[in-house]
Design a protein around this nucleic acid. Structure first.
Lengths: 200, 200, 200, 200
DNA sequence: AATGAATGAGAATTCATTCAT
DNA sequence: TATGAATGAATTCTCATTCAT
């Protein structure tokens, strides 16, 4: 929350940037990227339109910041769910991750996670924007993937599993329905088979 | 059928609609949905802007048609690749599909397939549009999935495999790199494990 | 109804013009002048847009014809209601006309009569059109007014009474409510006073 | 109040809205409602097209404001002419009002007053607009009518007299000619008869 | 830093009219 | 005469961005 300098605590420019980016992210989640206007942003931040431009060079750079905020949120979400990873054997690991992903699929708003890809895709034809978005995406997803990489001892397998997860997220966001229980069970089997296979 | 005096067959209205939708699809693939303008469409069809509106009520309904054309194209692509499905045992099937998907991943323009999801996501907040898109999507994907459903004897498994594929398509479209060979090999193993598992 | 030449009866060009003008009048009554499109006209006549231009030089001349049709309709309406005018004394005349106007106010669709003025007003800034409309208006209203002129022996009084009637028609069309009975009673008194006054 | 450096007072937002509405009213009077474009409005206000939309949500709401401005103008016109109403007896009242209306008919630009009804009629098929216009119309005309209501002790009579006036305004605006003197004389007689009648 | 008015470059859409067949 | 496809000019409306205060 922005505070006026009553001596208490005043947000510095960096913090206010972040605040705006987060508000923007909320708006994108609510209304989609296409419907995002600078006026919406200004209103939701209790700022004037002009003021937004004191913090962000233009709309694109604001979107990039919102994208970063979203990726950070996603990553935190993954990390929080995984705070005490006490998996000894493959079976336990498979169980753990199947549950984890299933839970995330249930609790993380599908539409919100979908926005990640919406932003990425919409930027496909603005090279300068695409570059920074892709880079940010890779870095953050790299961290998320690193667990699976360790588990499977394979970057590609990690990719594939995460891709499946994201695919399901998107399917769900666009109205395809499926049973979470079945997902979880199959997920476990797949993880297990990928782990087993690893040992051969 | 109307004939112009060169003897060449003239397209009827339905065919012209389709032609415009396909041209639109090309444009979307080239420039992205956000940058698509009705003027672009008109130009690429050698028509005036007004003429487009003789075929489509508005931009959205044109996009819906382009979306359908894309889905049809995707489906044809899958079907063409799979013309002679001579898979006797699970091993052969796994091999066949792993190769098929790997090949599609390689040959179908990743950006183009990605547009499927770009269109879906961008329309998330226009209910009337979303409804028809989702329905079309489900119908066509249903056909694509039916092969896996038979193979695995499970709708959910089919979903998951296809989701993985689409996730990878999107990853690739946004600049993530991975090795097709490894994908293919792992894919085969996963398919096999899912098929085996089926027999227990 | 347009007939194809089966040998029965075929409308000649003049009759078809009239038919189109009357259909146009219906459309204007239904949807207003602003919302009238040549496509509407074509559809309601079961003709193609291009064909309308075989009968009318352009939209304006079609509107002029529809306007004439409306005026004719109004005039017929007045005349029909007044077929046997057996008024001997002033009292009877006042009674007769008060009833007549009150009845017309009730039975003639207010919105339809209003269109007369809508068309006139909208054409105010197209001199060529205005000229013909005003002329047509004067001629037809002249006939309607002639009765009052005789009764009152005054063109101005006739104008004033008819103006009041048209004013009320418009008020009613735009949503102002009033009691028909009171209107009729007052109308009678006004007509009577104007007639009496005449004798002094 | 914001001041620009010439010392001249700058208009606040409300005043600027009003200014635009009044300019719009001028344009409507000049060119008619149908020919009014937002570009005209912008030009006549020395603003860009986009700026108009900072003051009015859309064209319709601008027209509604212009309509209000017109009604206000009409009402002021009536009130100004009637500043010192010293009418003791019926005869004097009749004389006063006959002169007042005759004068207004002469001095108030007929075309301008006519626009009131042009706007009302053209909006007949846009319910949301019609509602507010009709309401505004009723409110303002209620004030104008209240004088006659008192004089005649009858709402209906007041309506009828005002309807006659408006009818004449429209007739004149569309090119019908009549003598103001005769109008005034007859008006007086009608008012008188309606007042007398009141006493019986 | 904050404001908010102004802008102008689009973009979608409408529709009377034309014209070849 | 009838058609209906094509047109293009006009019009409304949007919105990121700028800038003087």
């Amino acid at each position: 929350m922005i505070q006026i300098n009553t001596g208490v605590k005043v947000l510095d420019k960096q913090e206010r940037k972040k605040y705006i980016a987060e508000k923007t992210l909320e708006l994108i989640s609510e209304k989609g990227l296409t419907n995002l206007t600078m006026e919406d942003v200004a209103l939701s931040c209790n700022l004037s339109k002009g003021s937004i431009y004191n913090y962000f060079k233009n709309k694109n750079s604001l979107i990039v910041s919102a994208f970063s905020a979203l990726l950070e949120k996603v990553q935190n979400f993954f990390e929080d769910k995984e705070s005490n990873p006490t998996q000894d054997c493959a079976e336990e690991s498979a169980d753990f991750y199947a549950n984890l992903y299933s839970e995330i699929l249930n609790t993380f708003p599908s539409k919100e996670l979908m926005r990640l890809f919406e932003i990425l895709m919409n930027s496909t034809h603005e090279p300068s924007m695409m570059q920074i978005l892709t880079q940010t995406f890779k870095e953050n997803y790299g961290k998320i993937l690193s667990r699976f990489e360790k588990l499977f001892n394979s970057k590609t397998k990690a990719f594939m599993l995460q891709a499946m997860f994201d695919g399901l997220v998107i399917y769900r966001a666009v109205g395809v329905e499926f049973s979470d229980n079945e997902i979880r069970d199959n997920l476990k089997k797949m993880i297990l088979s990928l782990t087993d296979e690893n040992k051969n």
